[in-house]
Design a protein around this nucleic acid. Structure first.
Length: 703
DNA sequence: ATTAGGG
DNA sequence: CCCTAAT
């Protein structure tokens, strides 16, 4: 469901016209940007869900080759069911933000994309589709992707699939059964006669069957041709409500072709640097041209965690799951066995208040997947609940899990459609081997499954940020861990560790940089302390490999295939080291720094951060003018709120008063009196001062 | 490279 | 703090 909707957006992305930006002052956060983001996310998530589906299917096949038949059928059912249920309840709640979800869903369903990518995604439930997809990819890619194919074919177990029971998929049957059931049910539920019917006819059953049959062996070349043909059926027109779908429909293969080239170029360009300029790459990937890539990127990076405090505290949006907040662009690099990257490592993204229902244990994971629950890997949703005094259960949400990075390379001549499939394959390959969930605490892998959370040290004290989950290749298991008991994670956790920053919250990251010393008094001299920023890019070589590797055929598929033309490879190997780009370590401003900042701003005014930086933080290499600006921003905010609401190292009220005064002053004098403030410029008047009770803050500017 | 804002 | 857009 959810993802269907997203899907729309995702594809839509291609269409989204770039909207000229209005002047900053005017522009609202929503518009263009948001659109794009959403789309990216959506697509991404879609992929994820697909993968999940695939996985399920795979699992079944893998587990028992002997069995035949109905499994898929059943699977399909289950999936659908879940979906439905999902719809009934939470859905509404969650989605209202974007308009009716239902509408969107319907739309997606009814719409047939020429290449049926859309359909594929839309009905991720249809495992058959997945197969089809894979196959197609092969064909398209031209290069014998048989390797890939196989890889994909390999099924594995996915942790959370309660619904799925191992069975071998009879492909043909599978398809039919699925499509029928799936669609029908949906139809009933939502009353999409049209859409459903249409789809049913148009799609999967036949093709999928064929495809699936072909599966093992290379593939039938005709498929490609087929793709285009599908376009006709697109009934878009009829459904006015589907805003995105239509666009989607038209998009795909050909239209994008040209674009694709562009994209690919870019992509390629970025590639070499991949290991190096994380940032750069990110940018490239994010570029408008490359819609798909970004998603991928997001996926990989699904910044598992750490958007920590800030986010946590921010209220969660109800639609949260459906939203972009999911979209953390962070470049994370993983190894086949996921690595614990420093800071980002943690994924317990945040505790959200989201209305969401709380899914428990394995159930949740499976559910999430089947729903396509928004997330890359799987998002377990829940929310921090009040801590029952006794048991101290904690409900928290995992917005994302870290997963191995996937590397994708596609020839420029490939079509977007093939690209999509390629990505799909990559994901499938990853999941196909079966994945496990790893638990990270403070960046370290927790292996002892028998220990309790408290024993392990997972508690409030540790701060949620220290808790993370990863997806790792290997025998699936462990998902349940998610909701086990745990001391209540209090919101307070957020605030708590100021000092902890330096502490091992994120080991990897912190490594090199401890600069606990709150601060040297003299800002100017700060050089002394802060020093080395070298982010501990320490080789986080595989910490993971250890366990599951043996069996994990997780990556198996990859190695098999030719990396050349169309290859999706879970990146790992050498390059990782440099790739670990992480968020800068957090370095709370010390009082002295704040003071210096205030002082500088009083003199220079806001809007001249460069100068401020030079004046007061020249030696503090880790403080960029942006940081200063941000700090000022927060200071102003802090000064406005009640002391009780403030967190972290308390800033002397006196300073805050000055902040307010200066802020007010410079706000008025918007006229940028450049350098010099006329004599005594900064005469902060009483106004604010008294308000704060403190004696008039009289920050006169000294010049 | 800076600035300004939103996330 | 990060990310982006606009300068």
């Amino acid at each position: 469901m959810v993802f269907k909707k997203r899907l729309d957006y995702g594809f839509n992305a291609f269409n989204v016209p770039k909207i000229p930006r209005a002047p900053r002052s005017i522009r609202r956060r929503g518009q263009s940007k948001r659109t794009v983001d959403d789309s990216q996310i959506c697509a991404f998530e879609l992929l994820a869900s697909l993968a999940g589906k695939l996985l399920q299917e795979s699992e079944s096949s893998a587990s028992s080759n002997a069995s035949e038949g109905h499994d898929h059928f059943s699977i399909g059912k289950d999936v659908i069911k879940q979906e439905i249920q999902y719809d009934d309840k939470p859905m509404k709640t969650e989605c209202f933000e974007q308009g009716s979800c239902e509408a969107s869903v319907v739309a997606s369903e009814s719409t047939t994309e020429n290449s049926d990518n859309l359909k594929e995604f839309t009905h991720a439930e249809n495992d058959a589709i997945l197969e089809r997809t894979l196959i197609k990819t092969q064909q398209i890619s031209g290069d014998s992707k048989s390797g890939i194919c196989k890889g994909n074919v390999a099924y594995g177990n996915f942790p959370g699939n309660a619904n799925v029971n191992g069975n071998s998929p009879d492909i043909g049957e599978l398809c039919d059964g699925k499509s029928e059931n799936g669609f029908k049910q949906e139809k009933d539920t939502r009353g999409l006669e049209t859409g459903a019917l249409h789809i049913a006819n148009t799609c999967p059953s036949k093709d999928s069957a064929e495809l699936s049959m072909a599966f093992p062996p290379p593939i039938n070349s005709d498929r490609d041709v087929k793709l285009p043909s599908r376009r006709d059926p697109v009934p878009n027109a009829s459904f006015s409500r589907h805003r995105n779908d239509i666009k989607l429909g038209s998009r795909d293969d050909d239209e994008n072709f040209s674009r694709f080239n562009k994209v690919s170029n870019r992509f390629k360009a970025s590639r070499p640097p991949t290991r190096i300029g994380d940032r750069r790459i990110r940018k490239l990937l994010t570029s408008k041209y490359w819609k798909v890539a970004p998603k991928l990127n997001d996926f990989e990076n699904s910044r598992a965690g750490i958007k920590p405090l800030y986010r946590k505290r921010k209220t969660c949006y109800n639609y949260d799951r459906c939203q972009y907040d999911t979209l953390y662009k962070r470049r994370k690099f993983f190894d086949r066995s996921s690595i614990v990257t420093s800071d980002g490592g943690n994924s317990s993204e945040s505790v959200s208040n989201s209305p969401g229902k709380v899914l428990n244990g394995d159930k949740s994971s499976s559910a999430a997947l089947s729903h396509g629950g928004c997330g890359v890997s799987s998002f377990l949703t829940g929310h921090q609940a009040s801590h029952p005094s006794n048991d101290s259960h904690v409900k928290f949400s995992i917005k994302s899990l870290r997963i191995p990075e996937l590397y994708v390379e596609v020839p420029e001549t490939a079509t977007v459609g093939s690209l999509k499939r390629t990505v799909m394959e990559a994901v499938a390959a990853l999941l196909g081997g079966g994945i496990r969930v790893g638990v990270l605490l403070q960046g370290k892998k927790v292996r002892d499954d028998s220990r309790t959370l408290s024993q392990t040290g997972i508690s409030c004290e540790d701060n949620l940020d220290a808790l993370g989950f990863t997806l790792e290749p290997g025998p699936a298991k462990a998902p349940p861990l998610v909701c086990s008991e745990e001391p209540p994670l209090l919101l307070s956790c957020d605030a708590a560790p100021q000092n902890l920053t330096s502490s091992p919250a994120t080991p990897a990251v912190d490594t090199g940089i401890l600069d606990p010393s709150p601060d040297p008094p003299s800002l100017t001299n700060s050089a002394n302390h802060v020093d080395s920023n070298h982010e501990p890019v320490s080789s986080i070589t595989d910490m993971l490999t250890d366990q599951s590797l043996p069996q994990s055929r997780a990556l198996v598929p990859v190695p098999a295939m030719n990396v050349e033309a169309l290859a999706v490879v879970p990146v790992n190997q050498k390059s990782r080291k440099s790739e670990l780009a992480q968020r800068r370590t957090r370095r709370p401003f010390s009082v002295s720094e704040v003071e210096a900042l205030v002082q500088a701003v009083e003199e220079l005014g806001t809007g001249r951060w460069r100068d401020v930086k030079l004046r007061a933080f020249e030696n503090a290499d880790h403080r960029t003018y942006v940081d200063l600006k941000d700090k000022w921003k927060t200071l102003v905010h802090t000064a406005k709120i009640s002391p009780q609401q403030r967190r972290g190292e308390p800033v002397p009220q006196e300073l805050l008063d000055r902040v307010l005064a200066a802020h007010a002053y410079w706000s008025q004098h918007q006229a940028k009196q450049q350098g010099k403030h006329h004599a005594g410029t900064l005469r902060l008047t009483d106004t604010q001062a008294d308000r704060n009770g403190v004696g008039a803050a009289i920050p006169t500017v000294i010049m």
